[in-house]
Nucleic acid binder design. Sequence first.
DNA 1: AGGATGATATCC
DNA 2: GATATCATCCTC
Length: 183
Amino acid sequence: MQALPRSFYNRDTTLVARELLGKYLIHRLDGVERIGKIVEVEAYLGPHDLAAHTSKGITPRTQVMFGPPGHAYVYLIYGMHHCMNVVTEADGTGAAVLLRALEPISNLPGSASGPGRLCKAMAINKSHYGQDLCGSVLFIAEDPDAGPVDIVERPRIGVDYAGEWATKPLRFYIDGNPYISRK
DNA sequence: AGGATGATATCC
DNA sequence: GATATCATCCTC
């Protein structure tokens, strides 16, 4: 399977988020190929989006989000869970898509529903910060059996502090999929 | 409903 | 250097 081209990520973040649904996330590590189908995502639009980490500006932690598209933004949350994002839009923009849940396809032990569980099942950690997703180690590819996807829009999870941005429908998931992290 | 657990941003 | 906060998950 072949990684999606960088041009896929160099587009409107909401559009990329919706099109990521149904794609395969693949991680090759020590001869093991882990594969999960992306079934739930959230879009973080940029510094004007008060729920996005980039709303505080460029910091050592968020700089990769401001960098070129098609790279991984991985961070530690609540001291124990990793979350993985895909950087979108042109260099300098500061936007990304959070991957929230996978449907296990291959070599995924336990649950991959929820951003922390997803990273645990995929063996993703801070060593993947800034990883180029247009390579052959950690990347996203088309589902060989891709069919039409029915998309549900909901407010994002865990961003109640973000005022009106907390209510915007920027969380997307595949309707009826049993691996969604929350209804 | 509450605790774990550490990086990060923001203050002094 | 101290402290409040956090795009979560597990256990009770």
